[in-house]
Design a protein around this nucleic acid. Structure first.
Lengths: 339, 339
DNA sequence: GGCAACTGGTAAATCGTTTATCTTGATACC
DNA sequence: GGTATCAAGATAAACGATTTACCAGTTGCC
């Protein structure tokens, strides 16, 4: 590969000039013909600055870290897609690391975070491993942005309007005539869990309905949603509708209803949180509320970039595009009251 | 952050000693007490070698590139998970880049590939964008490993036994009494497409069945599988079973059957290729053949590491764990012959 | 006692960029 | 005519680590 010195040599100038020209140094005074000559040589040699050398000199890697939990969760895929696009547009590049490795493998953490391989880190707090990583990274010089959560001040975070979307979902069920609406709660203590629950409760209260006692942990995986739904259906008077706090719990709930012989949506309506391609391929197709996850990914990168440049911690709520109800087959009118 | 010079200073030696000690230089002669002192200081200062400096000096980034098409495809998620684990265990780190950006955005390609940000690249050839990337990267010094495909000699690649798995799937249907078995072909001209088709054909031939005329493009996405299945069902005598060359096409086929009012598995059996969590949550649960995708990801990283170290191009077939039939609800005995 | 071999390191040269500070000849100003 | 300014670059010092070559004492051997 051609180096900057080689370009300089062939253009008859010093490396300094090449560097300043290519980086657009405003203090550089250069004759037009010299500039053209340098640019021509750089193009001819297909000169590309060496990543490592630049990183060393600038004390900046040009790389953003993204800690991932489970790539199989479609919610992640969407956030990552947004982050990748934004990072690319800004000339950065995304480095992925498994959050469990970061938490449990000291060597990995040091290499990635302390060794300066990344300029900043994005991660979703979810479970002990991620909390551990947040704690450790807070003690380093690497700024961190929390994904998909409202956080308090020393931290930076970017979230979507979970509360509003949860209300949207619940109101949809209420509008269909449901009065006994259960909530499959997100596990963990974070704003996602709190806000979605709060949204459900608020919508229930607004409609004069009782929101107590109909809440059960649905988790973030199909299996947990399945179990939760199974338990609910085994109750004396099962709910006629269920709002699943996560997409995968919603899918699991649907499967549970089928296995229990409860027809959806005739006897039970199910609505999920966040959209994914397979929501159209379960049966019946899952009604969901869709949130701007891709945009969340983009904003996270922007915020992280600002923090790397020294800006203060910030909290961002991605409110556009707005949460949207996507009605599909899994929700329908409430069955006639048994009471 | 503490530098190697600072460690050396506090330990009363030169940086050379610290470097050689920490990197296990076998030619280094050092007194036990000096060694302990250096190690103690390094530990006390929590010394971590600077990524960029090391990369610059060694002319090696310590980073492996992974070009991704679509993170929503679960097959990818599994390969990535394997690659990430293996990379981490070897002290490398994974850098993800969207294959379309690499193909279409010149700037991105140069930064990532030519600038030395990665030591090697893994990608799945699938579509024009990826072919373009392969062509361009072949002209650089960066070694590339093709994922999930058997390739010819100048290239390196790692594949699973698509042919065998396809036979396994087809034989399962044959064993259930099906004789009219359609194949939803994978799109593109690659060994995945060829081998799966060949496996289907071989199994059909072995059973004395006709494999011609029952092949239609199913693609790699639910929508394409849906359309293909819809067309098949509209035929004069629809098949009684269908082998979908991809998981998502299988899911789409299932949905198509339902929308066409064809009950599965009573009138139509469907089997998919590769497993994914949602295969258990479609209705009926999708029978599939499972292949060692995670191991494929691991082997890809190993092969790439060898190539980076100068080894010749190689082709690898991941044959363990063996392809496995995972019977679920979408396949059943063939309906009584209409003829 | 002379030479070789070993011990326990040291010195210095990179790697490719960036950037603050100089230099040098020409022009402008008063 | 002396000085200040300016155009157009040149110089050189980092950034932090790795690696090759080398060296001063000390032992060992015959």
């Amino acid at each position: 590969m051609a180096t900057i010195v080689e370009v300089a040599r062939q253009a008859g100038v010093t490396a300094s000039v090449v560097s300043r020209l290519l980086n657009g140094d405003p203090t550089l005074r250069i004759r037009a013909e010299t500039r053209d000559r340098v640019l021509a040589v750089a193009a001819a040699l297909d000169y590309t600055p060496n990543h490592a050398a630049r990183a060393l000199r600038r004390a900046r890697a040009g790389t953003l870290g993204l800690a991932v939990h489970d790539l199989h969760n479609p919610v992640y895929a969407e956030i990552i897609a947004g982050a990748e696009a934004e990072a690319r547009e800004r000339g950065s590049v995304l480095l992925v690391a498994d959050v469990n490795s970061l938490a449990s493998d000291d060597e990995t953490f040091r290499r990635v975070v302390q060794g300066g391989a990344i300029d900043g880190l994005m991660l979703q707090r979810d479970g002990d491993a991620s909390d551990k990583v947040v704690a450790r990274v807070a003690g380093s010089r690497v700024p961190v942005v929390i994904l998909n959560e409202r956080v308090r001040s020393p931290l930076s975070g970017v979230a979507v309007d979970d509360r509003r979307a949860a209300m949207l979902a619940t109101r949809h069920l209420i509008a269909l005539g449901h009065r006994d609406i259960a909530y499959l709660q997100v596990s963990g203590s974070n704003s996602r869990a709190r806000d979605r629950r709060a949204g459900w409760q608020a919508a229930m209260r607004d409609a004069g309905l009782d929101a107590t006692g109909r809440m059960v942990v649905g988790g973030v995986r199909p299996e947990t949603g399945y179990r939760a739904m199974t338990d609910l259906l085994a109750a004396h008077t099962p709910p006629t509708a269920v709002f699943a706090g996560t997409l995968l719990a919603g899918v699991g709930a649907l499967t549970a209803a089928r296995d229990a012989g409860v027809s959806v949506p005739a006897r039970l309506s199910v609505i999920g949180f966040h959209d994914g391609w397979f929501a159209e391929h379960v049966y019946p197709a899952l009604t969901v509320v869709r949130l701007p996850l891709r945009e969340l990914g983009r904003q996270a990168v922007r915020l992280l970039a600002r923090r790397i440049d020294g800006a203060e911690a910030e909290q961002i709520l991605v409110s556009s595009p707005e949460p949207e109800l996507v009605p599909r087959g899994s929700t329908g009118p409430a069955p006639a009251r048994r009471g």
